[in-house]
Design a protein around this nucleic acid. Structure first.
Length: 275
DNA sequence: CTTGTGCCCTGACCGC
DNA sequence: TGCGGTCAGGGCACAA
């Protein structure tokens, strides 16, 4: 569900109340699929109890909870993951995988489709097969340049859209913002990535950053169930130009927006504006 | 190494 | 009202 702007919005909202809180009781759903690549529920519960949350960071689409002694709890929300606050006495709604007592509130992780993930990362170097260690640079980091993209992509034949979705190239871009960035840059999602000229990479990176920043300002895009806090939806869906608009009119030229499948994902684009 | 294709799940929505 | 089909902000395992 959430891409970079949504995860960043959730991070900012959560940080306001969880930083400095100490984890009291911990509940973990029995046989939760979200724990499939990490320590057991029993171990995780023991590791978390009594730890203080020092900081909350985002890396790509991952939320990183920095705890005492350099330990980290990492959460990926998958497609339907949600984090929200509840009063301590409130019963858990369905599909709760993790519930932490934090001061006057409880933090709950809900994920009906169970595509999300939870990782326990002990202090020190990242273990090599760690999801975080394979991530590419942050698109909003000034050190990420068009030259980097051109170099990384040289000789590759995959579609531009597929490249944008590749988390080892850039971390955090998902289906919505890949489509919106391609549209804003005037580039076809089908273009072989290796065929972009240097100035086209510049245009693309500028468009991508502008879209991501605007989406963060809008507190993310709610298409169906994303909420950055209990009951609070995003606002950027009002500003989408092509995503989910197939059959409608291009806001720039009036041509019909088309839909295709690229990299296994539904892709919307304007066949006239995007070359 | 690269690229493409299923598949993992639940739930919302649409047309009959 | 009920039921089947389709689709969904992601990513991984696998095959070629």
């Amino acid at each position: 569900m959430p891409e970079l702007p949504e995860v960043e919005t959730i991070r900012r909202s959560l940080a306001e109340w969880i930083i400095g809180q100490t984890i009291g009781r911990v509940w973990i759903k029995k046989n939760s699929r979200l724990l499939r690549n990490t320590v057991s529920a029993q171990v995780l519960k023991k590791k978390l109890t009594g730890r203080t949350i020092r900081a909350l960071e985002r890396r790509g689409k991952y939320l990183v909870f920095l705890l005492d002694q350099g330990h980290r709890l990492v959460i990926h929300l998958g497609m339907t993951g949600k984090l929200f606050r509840l009063a301590p006495h409130s019963p858990s709604p369905p599909h709760i995988h993790l519930r932490l007592a934090l001061g006057k509130h409880h933090l709950l992780l809900q994920d009906p489709r169970t595509f999300g993930r939870i990782f326990w990362l002990p202090a020190g170097k990242l273990p090599d097969p760690s999801p975080l260690s394979r991530l590419g640079p942050e698109p909003l980091d000034e050190k990420t340049t068009a030259e980097y993209l051109a170099e990384k992509t040289a000789g590759r034949g995959c579609a531009l859209k597929a490249l944008l979705l590749d988390q080892t190239v850039l971390a955090g871009v998902g289906n919505i913002y890949a489509d919106e960035a391609c549209f804003q840059a005037g580039l076809s999602p089908f273009r072989p990535a290796g065929s972009l000229r240097p100035e086209e990479w510049e245009t693309l990176l500028r468009a991508l950053r502008s879209v991501l920043r605007a989406a963060i300002r809008g507190k993310g895009t709610t298409v169906r169930n994303y909420e950055w806090e209990h009951g609070k939806t995003g606002g950027f869906q009002k500003r989408l130009r092509v995503y989910g608009k197939a059959g409608g009119r291009c806001p720039a030229c009036g041509q019909e927006i088309r839909r295709a499948v690229v990299a296994g994902r539904s892709t919307s684009f304007c066949p006239r504006c995007q070359k």
